[in-house]
């Protein structure tokens, strides 16, 4: 397409019109416009919902102040309450701006500080969990007895609502002198070893029998087969699992902060907000957590692309 255009240059305005139409087509056919539309609809719906949910409280307040009000005033007032049922998006953005950019990052009021606390335990749990998951998968792939005895338990381990056990893990580990980051990391680890183990079992078995036979004809040892065949062919599965694992690891770290009265972290921030009815604070912590989750998944996706390119995949 592009080379053709260079060989026979069209008149400037025609080309521009063509480009415009192509761009418009792409906008309708592609994802950007639909996503933008749906997002806009959500924001509008949000504002409407904020009016609807906050109206009762606001009318009450007006009546108590013996103040007459018009509908316009009511709407504006519902978007500017101190402790609304549902804060309007711009209130959350303002709170985020205040706690992220206007506050020093070492202050306990700074969301950056709380995000860092949560992030550090997320990453620690993620690292240990990934390692554990890979080790388990390697064991399972190489020993039949391990597969038969361990795999059912790995699967049923996830039907145990670990997040319910979180408070106890924190207390028990606290009793033997482990505080702060480690208990939270343990919970993250428990959540995120599972997708890695399952994905890697699948991935390490991904080489087809022909390839395995080839390795055998080369007289490759188990170790060589593992490094040269099984490991590389499991990488796509590994990264797919890692994306799930890092998201779930963040959930684990946040929830681990809830029941223990943790002093810092996004979970602690939510809990404090819920105690004092600071809805805007809860929502901004929630938004921060979401941004964190999205960027963590994004980083893993970048790593995936890098690894694929290193392995010679077509972009």
């Amino acid at each position: 397409m592009t080379t053709d255009a260079q060989v026979t240059p069209a008149p400037a305005d025609a080309a521009q019109r063509g480009r415009l139409r192509a761009g418009l087509d792409r906008a309708v056919q592609g994802r950007a416009l639909p996503i933008a539309t749906v997002s806009l609809a959500i924001v509008l719906l949000w504002y409407a919902l904020a009016v609807w949910l906050n109206a009762d409280l606001q009318i009450n307040r007006f009546e108590r102040a013996d103040q007459s009000w018009t509908f316009g005033e009511l709407v504006l007032a519902t978007w500017a309450q101190d402790r609304p049922m549902l804060p309007a998006p711009h209130q959350i953005v303002a709170e985020l701006n205040k706690t992220v950019f206007q506050t020093g990052i070492t202050s306990v009021r700074s969301l950056v500080y709380h995000s860092w606390v949560t992030l550090s335990s997320t990453l620690a749990g993620f690292a240990i969990g990934t390692l554990l998951g890979i080790l388990l998968a390697v064991g399972i792939v190489h020993a039949r007895a391990l597969e038969k005895s361990l795999l059912p338990w790995i699967i049923s381990s996830q039907t145990v609502p670990i997040l319910a056990i979180a408070p106890m893990i924190v207390v028990v580990l606290g009793a033997i002198g482990l505080n702060g980051l480690i208990p939270k990391a343990v919970i993250s680890m428990y959540l995120c070893f599972f997708p890695v183990a399952i994905g890697m079992v699948k991935g390490l078995r991904a080489p087809d029998p022909l390839q395995m036979d080839l390795m055998r004809t080369y007289s490759a040892s188990r170790w060589q087969t593992f490094w040269m065949l099984r490991w590389p062919s499991s990488l796509p599965f590994l990264f797919a699992s890692l994306k799930v694992a890092i998201a779930i690891s963040l959930v684990g770290a946040i929830v681990a902060e809830l029941p223990t009265g943790a002093q810092a972290g996004l979970g602690a921030r939510m809990l404090a907000g819920s105690y004092y009815g600071q809805t805007i604070q809860i929502w901004s912590a929630l938004v921060a957590a979401s941004v964190l989750a999205a960027s963590l998944v994004g980083v893993v996706a970048l790593g995936e692309r890098w690894a694929h390119r290193r392995m010679g995949a077509q972009p």
Binding site: L250, V251, A294
Partner: peptide, 23 residues
């Protein structure tokens, strides 16, 4: 709608939704 909602849905499934519990 499918093209717009699906990527958002995928994004949301990666978010820590339990956080809405206090709300």
């Amino acid at each position: 709608l499918k093209r717009g909602l699906l990527p958002l849905g995928n994004l949301v499934s990666a978010l820590p939704i339990v956080g809405i519990a206090p709300i």
